[in-house]
């Protein structure tokens, strides 16, 4: 057992965990935060996406012991215009992937603001618009089996439009 401390959604939590416990299991099974979902449990679907020190990660491939001292945000700790935009644009059907989609989109917008390029950013680009193809590429780590991608895209574009162009 290792004792770890994490700031989860603004509250400091102290946990004793075995080293093989994933961050996802620690959040769900130990802290009762079932927003992050165990979809594939192998880093392929993105349903477990949370923010660790502001960066989006797959909680299923993260060992909890590696996040000792980190600040973790799950969907339970999120209050963001994207949430209403997802409702407005039908950005979900069953809702299973939605917590991960939202945490991922929040992380994605922060990455864009910080100047992170993507695979579709033109080489040598200076300021560039967060286009639909940019958003699709940057959100490719979050799968939706209902196929709500167009609604998800519209919701993100709606909110990103208010935040302007880099």
């Amino acid at each position: 057992m290792t004792q770890i401390r994490m700031n989860v959604n603004g509250s400091v939590e102290s946990l004793d965990v075995e080293p093989w416990v994933s961050l996802l299991d620690a959040l769900r099974e130990r802290l009762g935060l079932t927003g992050p979902k165990k979809g594939c449990d192998q880093g392929a679907c993105g349903a477990c996406t949370v923010l660790a020190d502001g960066l989006r990660i797959n909680a299923c491939l993260a060992l909890a012991v590696q996040y000792d001292g980190s600040e973790i945000t799950t969907i339970e700790g999120v209050a963001h215009p994207l949430q209403e935009a997802f409702v407005r644009h039908d950005g979900f059907q069953c809702g299973y992937c939605t917590p991960g989609q939202l945490c991922s989109a929040i992380g994605m917008l922060a990455e864009y603001e910080a100047g992170m390029p993507s695979a579709v950013t033109p080489p040598g680009a200076g300021a560039y618009e967060l286009s639909e193809s940019e958003v699709r590429e940057r959100m490719s780590g979050n799968l939706c089996r209902c196929g709500a991608y167009n609604g998800i895209l519209d919701a993100i574009m709606d909110v990103a439009g208010e935040e302007g162009t880099r």
């Binding site: 880093g43 993105g46 960066l55 989006r56 990660i57 991922s104 992380g107 390029p117 490719s140």
Partner: peptide, 11 residues
């Protein structure tokens, strides 16, 4: 940038 996903690249 052509590999994995943004979440995985952050890790």
């Amino acid at each position: 940038l052509s590999g994995a996903s943004a979440q995985l690249r952050n890790m």
